[in-house]
């Protein structure tokens, strides 16, 4: 129950961040787009803004972690092959499909974009199939 409340509260903050990014800077707050544009050099005049966004995104949770006495737990698998395969797929897929959970899921669906809705339904379905296969193979 408290997980749901924390989830909804955290979600509200994420939505406020996306709303501020849109109304202030006129941009879609998509994590894969902001990072990807820096990585492949397609970002030109707005490099500093992207770096500011990513720096805050990395350092603020680090500060919270330093103040939070409960042990850090991301629960990430220890299987390095799985991690590398997952990272490659996430990077390739989000750039090919032009967005991830924040860009398509939050910013796209909220404007009732057909592309955002189709992408979100598709990646959630693909994720569910993948987790089901992982569970079947005993990898979960």
């Amino acid at each position: 129950m408290t997980d749901w409340i924390a989830g909804a509260a955290g979600g509200l903050l994420i939505g406020c961040a996306a709303a501020l990014y849109l109304l202030g800077n006129g941009k879609i707050m998509g994590a894969s787009g902001i990072l990807g544009g820096l990585a492949d050099g397609t970002a030109r005049h707005d490099r500093v803004e992207r770096i500011a966004f990513i720096s805050a995104l990395v350092t603020v949770p680090a500060i919270i972690r330093a103040l939070d006495p409960t042990p850090a737990a991301t629960g990430l698998t220890g299987n390095i092959f799985l991690i590398v395969a997952a990272g490659l797929l996430v990077g390739l897929g989000t750039r090919l499909g032009n967005g991830c959970t924040s860009g398509h899921g939050v910013c796209g669906i909220s404007r009732l974009s057909i592309r955002g809705i189709v992408a979100t339904v598709t990646f959630i379905a693909a994720g569910m199939v993948t987790v089901a296969v992982l569970r079947f193979l005993g990898g979960l």
Binding site: A31, S32, L35, L57, G75, L76, T77, L82, I83, A85, A86, G87, L88, L89, V90, G91, L92, G93, T94, R95, L96, G97, N98, C100, T101, S102, H104, V118, A119, T120, T122, F123, I124, A125, A126, G127, M128, V129, T130, V131, L134
Partner: peptide
Amino acid sequence: TGAILFGMGWGLAGLCPG
């Protein structure tokens, strides 16, 4: 294609870019 590949990676590790 992108959404399918991303969903597969997301399911494998439980991590997305954000």
